[in-house]
Design a protein around this nucleic acid. Structure first.
Lengths: 102, 102
DNA sequence: ACCTCGGTTTGATAATCATCGAACCGAGTC
DNA sequence: GACTCGGTTCGATGATTATCAAACCGAGGT
């Protein structure tokens, strides 16, 4: 069973940039991207508490960067790469392509 | 007479993203880009005080996104587009290409 | 009915950050 | 020297924001 939330618009460029400018959230985005599809929340972060993670998921969702869907009773997060690319071509993809380490 | 500050490294991806995620700073970056070269501080912002602007310039500089140089006694800011592109290809350019309004 | 499991919401706290005015500084100019 | 002009630095203040623990909630399982 797949139950998807109402799909919202991609946010402003500022919102998107602010969303990914947080290290915890960028890591989440990277992992969702690596996953290639809806991923259960648990494996998208570590180092922060459940509630903090949920807070970050919300910000990503409100910026239109991610989706939430319930698959088999479990909440999953999904990167809306295509939607963001359609709105701001190259922005998210180039960020994902950047070498992460420094 | 051109007097340029010591050139620093481009900062981490996080630093760059955080730098441009502020509306005032993104506008500064856009104007510098439009200028195509070193631009006097004054015409890179409006709506904030001199000291606030100076603060934002500093953050952009520390992120390695901009340069400071003194031309004929006047301080100028310059977008280090090539340097940032070399480090994180496509990131800054796609942000600049994004349609600003919403 | 009870319990666990995954996730969200609610306060609350602490830290970060944008903002300003005022003082300061260096280079010109008068 | 005195004065402006463009810019920076210094505190200080207020607003955001990241963080957590605790309470809560819905879906399954037993």
């Amino acid at each position: 069973m797949t139950d998807t939330d109402e799909v919202t618009q991609v946010g402003t460029l500022q919102e998107v940039l602010a969303a990914v400018s947080d290290p915890v959230r960028l890591e989440m985005v990277r992992r969702m991207y690596a996953e290639g599809g809806p991923a259960p929340c648990a494996q998208l972060y570590d180092g922060v508490s459940k509630s903090t993670a949920s807070h970050h998921f919300k910000i990503l969702r409100e910026a239109g960067v991610t989706d939430r869907s319930v698959i088999g009773g479990q909440t999953h997060q999904r990167l809306r790469l295509d939607d963001v690319e359609a709105e701001y071509p190259g922005v998210l993809s180039s960020i994902l392509a950047a070498r992460p380490a420094r």
